[in-house]
Nucleic acid binder design. Structure first.
Lengths: 214, 214
DNA sequence: TAGATTGTTAATCGATTAACAATC
DNA sequence: TAGATTGTTAATCGATTAACAATC
């Protein structure tokens, strides 16, 4: 059992994966699992699974293993999925609309309450019953609804100014799909970056080295 | 200088970031940089930058630092961005269309040559001049064009069968947005996974722990 | 009870950081 | 030449793995 700020980033990066695999197992009807079996499925070692789990508490039982339903509950709590956080989405281009319409925010404790775009083309459109509003209404909207988090789906060149605006209205957390490096200017904010192009470059690297290597 | 398979996954995960920051610096007119300065911008240590670079060769010059244009070229080569790879995209839902229309595949050496969806709703539509075709034409298309890579933007429940089909046609690399775990069945394939929901859960975790912690 | 599997401590392994001689 | 900064070796730090007593 460790205090939250002692959890290493290696462990943190594995938490969503645990949650995902456990939910999967449970929906397939599995009720309990040993560290050995889970490790096999996820490609870890049993030691690592037990070490990771024990950062947060002793969830298992000797001779038996872990109760999957209980584990799912524990991880939901660890990840804060049951804490309600309101969110707005900035940038209703292809990516923004895809995220707004497909991501199940609710399962992660987020509630999408507003969508904004500078292009009047989208005005009047709705995604999941949320109207797309003009950029210039963001400040008044935030003043009124105090959203906790902003999803950034706009081009990198428009991001710096937008982040300044949003930070000024009190938003402290960002799910950032743009290539603007928020942490550099605002190291105190909560940021999760999604760099799709990094992922594609990694695949390019893997392909290149498998072709020459083997 | 290390051989490709000696490069640790920690180093690999940093390569796209180096490339991204260096391109950024260059487009801002910067010509040379020291490990110290680059480290500061990227949030690494100077030692780490030099260690990382020297996995691939001695690109710098004592007393001077690194030439950014040269570095960009080296990293493009390391990442295989100049090797042409053809790609198809499966699943033209919101996410698939967003990826097809916004991702700059060309910059990473990929060429998107086909888009497929099981839903006839999309039939006849084009994205970037690439027509969306029906799922049942995938096999003949692959037999003819032998694509190197497939982007998977379909639901997890349809993914296993699709991967079997694609593997049978000879595709060895996948950019996987679905939650199906390809590596479990096919450990030999080249796979880069994108788990947007993992990223959002990580943000949830960060938010939760900053609120209680500070 | 015997077998299984945990929680946890100790050992190993690898990655990051520090230091410094080489050299531009 | 003096100053700056690399490439690289050594030291440190942290993460993963192994081992095992505790116990269900």
């Amino acid at each position: 059992m460790k205090s939250p700020n002692e959890i290493s980033s290696s462990v943190i990066s594995r938490l969503p994966r645990y949650y995902r695999f456990l939910c999967d197992l449970y929906s397939n009807g599995k009720k309990r699992i040993s560290s050995k079996e889970l490790a096999e499925i996820m490609g870890f070692t049993a030691s690592q699974v037990r070490q990771d789990f024990n950062c947060f508490g002793g969830f298992g039982q000797q001779g038996y293993g872990y109760n999957i339903e209980q584990l799912i509950g524990e991880f939901a709590g660890i990840l804060g999925l049951n804490v309600l956080k309101t969110a707005i989405l900035i940038g209703a281009g292809n990516l923004g609309r895809a995220v707004a319409s497909q991501m199940s925010f609710e399962d992660k404790g987020f509630k999408l309450i507003g969508i904004f775009d500078c292009d009047p083309l989208y005005k009047g459109m709705k995604i999941r019953d949320i109207p797309i509003s003009a950029d210039d209404s963001i400040e008044s909207f935030c003043a009124e609804h105090k959203p906790d988090m902003a999803v950034l789906c706009l081009p990198a060149d428009k991001a710096p100014e937008m982040v300044d605006t949003l930070v000024a209205t009190g938003i402290k957390s960002f799910w950032n799909f743009s290539h603007y490096d928020i942490h550099r200017k605002y190291p105190e904010l909560n940021v999760a970056n999604v760099h799709l192009s990094d992922s594609l470059m990694t695949l390019s690297f893997i392909i290149k080295n498998n072709e020459t290597g083997e």
